[in-house]
Design a protein around this nucleic acid. Structure first.
Lengths: 217, 217
DNA sequence: ACCTGAACACCGTTCAAGT
DNA sequence: ACCTGAACACCGTTCAAGT
């Protein structure tokens, strides 16, 4: 995925140290463009999100926009990346605060709550998810991230003494991922009291899918 | 939604009886275009699905394609409509074969299985769902259909003695809908044995969300 | 060194001309 | 009565020219 390569040139090698202020300014504009895009996404949706609209909203010309991003998809790609990074941070948080004797149920609840929080915080999450679903490049990114999450989850669940391993553990982690994803999107749209109850439902279902309660014995 | 109006002119009023063969041919082409579109959708995805490609694949010119459908979205709209109609038929089937003493659990399992079958049968379902999510007109159609399903489900669940009513019953029906949708899309992609286990998970989760098992008391 | 916006390519849609 | 495909409008992208 060479779309990302260009976007990751933010490490400052020694020889570039003098140019730091300029890089910092560029980085700031880069972030600004992403913020504007997230706003527009929530306002007009993916289909009416034109590059000219993004440029105008960011106060620059189209040509200048293409100085920061190689194409329209790369902008949405970077936005998706930024959101997925938030999830990774959440996973790190969960990992850091885990205690051995916690048990699978309490762990799952905590985990679900923390991931839900990331969904809540992203403005226009529904449209972003829509873009991540319908644009092939973003879809690939999403799938890769899913694979990464499943890997981390299987380790975490194993540490909490889940009674499954190998392919079956992976399958359960995937089911966990899918229902957390689907219901988080629902919860974000619901009112306070409804959201609270659906969150309860989600936690229960997530745990029982992981614990394999439905199985005979 | 006036896109649909044109598509529903299939009832034969007496005065049009003479023209039936022509209408029948038109109807056949109409269906043929939808089949071709479903195929292409599965093959190339929404983004590379151009009107010229559809026309060429169907063996007609672009202009002729526009004789059958007012625009590109209308084609996808009709395809979505046709799929949603399959679901409605499934609901009718379920309704027709329901017995009073069945109980909520058995009913939910049967219901879930039947809906899953509709997902399995639609070719390129993933891309169709993607289109239904990302194109505003189709999204509206989908939301309206969700509302319709929730209405029907609440009645069915009530008949099976669910312990909830009003807004809470609707909320549970929505949660039911969302997890059946999310996991059906996963199951369709899975291998036989994995699919069987995830179907088990789904049935269990669906039932427990409806029964409200997680609640204190 | 960075920005601009007219110009180009491509796709959805139309309509004058054909049969 | 129906079909065709060149022509038009619009949006993503480029690049010669400006500061």
């Amino acid at each position: 995925m060479d779309v990302t390569k260009k976007l990751k040139e933010n490490g400052n090698t020694p020889t570039e140290a003098r140019r730091m202020p300029i890089q910092a300014r560029a980085k700031k504009r880069h972030e600004h463009i992403l913020d504007i895009t997230a706003e527009l996404l929530a306002k007009v949706g993916v289909d009416e999100l034109t590059t000219i609209l993004i440029a105008k909203s960011a106060g620059i010309s189209v040509g200048s926009l293409y100085h920061y991003f190689p194409n329209k998809i790369a902008i949405l790609y970077a936005l998706a990346q930024r959101w997925l990074d938030e999830i990774n941070i959440a996973l790190d948080d969960i990992d850091a605060s885990t205690e051995d004797s916690e048990g699978l149920e309490a762990f799952t609840h905590r985990c679900t709550e923390r991931v839900l929080e990331v969904y809540r915080r992203q403005q226009g999450i529904l449209h972003l998810v829509q873009a991540m679903f319908s644009i092939p490049e973003l879809h690939t990114l999403d799938e890769e991230h899913d694979a990464y999450m499943i890997k981390r989850f299987t380790h975490m669940f194993a540490d909490q003494g889940i009674e499954a391993k190998g392919k079956e553990l992976e399958r359960r982690a995937r089911v966990y991922l899918e229902i957390v994803h689907a219901l988080s999107l629902l919860i974000v749209e619901q009112s306070g009291s409804q959201a609270a109850r659906t969150t309860q439902d989600l936690k229960f279902m997530a745990y029982s899918a992981l614990a394999g309660y439905h199985k005979p014995q």
